[in-house]
Design a protein around this nucleic acid. Sequence first.
DNA 1: TCAATAGTGTCTGTTAGACATTATGGA
DNA 2: TCCATAATGTCTAACAGACACTATTGA
Lengths: 220, 220
Amino acid sequence: MALRGRGGGGTGGGLRTSLVVDLVLLAPAGDRLALFAPADASGRRALPSGAPRAGEALDAAAMRLARAATGGTVAWLEQARTRTTSDGVSVLFVGLIPGPAADDERWIPRARAATLGAAARHLVDEATDAIGNWLDRSPIAFRLLPPAFTLSDLQDVYEILLGRTLHKASFRRALQSARLVSPTKEWRSEGRGRPAQLFRLAPRARKSWRRGVRFDWLSE
Amino acid sequence: MALRGRGGGGTGGGLRTSLVVDLVLLAPAGDRLALFAPADASGRRALPSGAPRAGEALDAAAMRLARAATGGTVAWLEQARTRTTSDGVSVLFVGLIPGPAADDERWIPRARAATLGAAARHLVDEATDAIGNWLDRSPIAFRLLPPAFTLSDLQDVYEILLGRTLHKASFRRALQSARLVSPTKEWRSEGRGRPAQLFRLAPRARKSWRRGVRFDWLSE
DNA sequence: TCAATAGTGTCTGTTAGACATTATGGA
DNA sequence: TCCATAATGTCTAACAGACACTATTGA
């Protein structure tokens, strides 16, 4: 058992190993989640990964790799679990990308993650759980939308990310009572039906009120 | 951007670096949280840390180190954030230990984490947040108690871990409606006051019902 | 008897979800 | 006109929190 003081010597200390960042990048596509799993030269699909550069922070490395891989905007990127593999240490990052083109072959339906193998499927499950957790605590869904959006758009994003349907009136009431969105004077008409009002994410001035303890855990 | 296939060659791939597990071990002590920060030979306190052995999984390494450091039972241990430091890669683990002896000098009040330095204080804050998150989703509080406990004991643990007081009647109602504890026929008398009934963690058969989306986020 | 703690019953304001209704445009 | 979608009002059951009260022990 080593007690490491502050500023221990340079690269001293732990076991030496290789370090890799693995990425599970998801995006809303239609009414499902899509997974970024491009094929390599031999046609085999895999999750993107890469190595941090010397001195580069993990978050920065993951962001650089995610941008380079997708070529697009990264709406949100967060660290998940670290594990040791036969290759060394793997740090998993979970990211959300705004809607990719429907014909982009690098994206596959999230439900087909199992075709990448059991290990990849496990990482994707872990990523999906992480998104659900963050969604409860942070406005990540808004980053997948343009600055002005309809409440139906927003609800669609939530439903895709959560993988379940939400009650419309309750959803809107919760948004309103949290003063989370503010209406604009614009309306958007899409096909049939009444046009929808556009909203923006409101600059927050909310006191986070405390919620009671809930014991509705998942059955183990 | 490297696309790594399955079973890449042995230790190939990423940047080579050293790997260290850092531990934030907390325990309820009286009505506060205590932090495990033993002093080394020179009298300087620090968070415990250590290196995984070759081939050892991170969880296993953290558990081994936590047990070795405290010499006691580890009620719960979970991975938190991984970061790169000047020493290499550091994987943070958060653990809970059942009540240490009041005269155990290796434990300090959690509020005095700042005396270990800014970096350690940050890790401890991160650990406290992680505990709050897990507490919402998993029965970790029960592991800090003996198999039979009073509801006041349980509430005390929750209050210490959450850092705030809870409403007694609501706490009990929530426990009851979740069918989370089952009463025993034993009662325990401690000093003055009416004796308290002992309870046990009930074998769960709960369907986890879905909760609506809440937007009560912390102000950023 | 008093103090202290355990446990419970009742009330109230809030909220999630169900349902129904109105509003407004396109086909 | 009919249909589809947006937006909103009302009702109800559940729940959190407040409060008060009873129960049971030791001092």
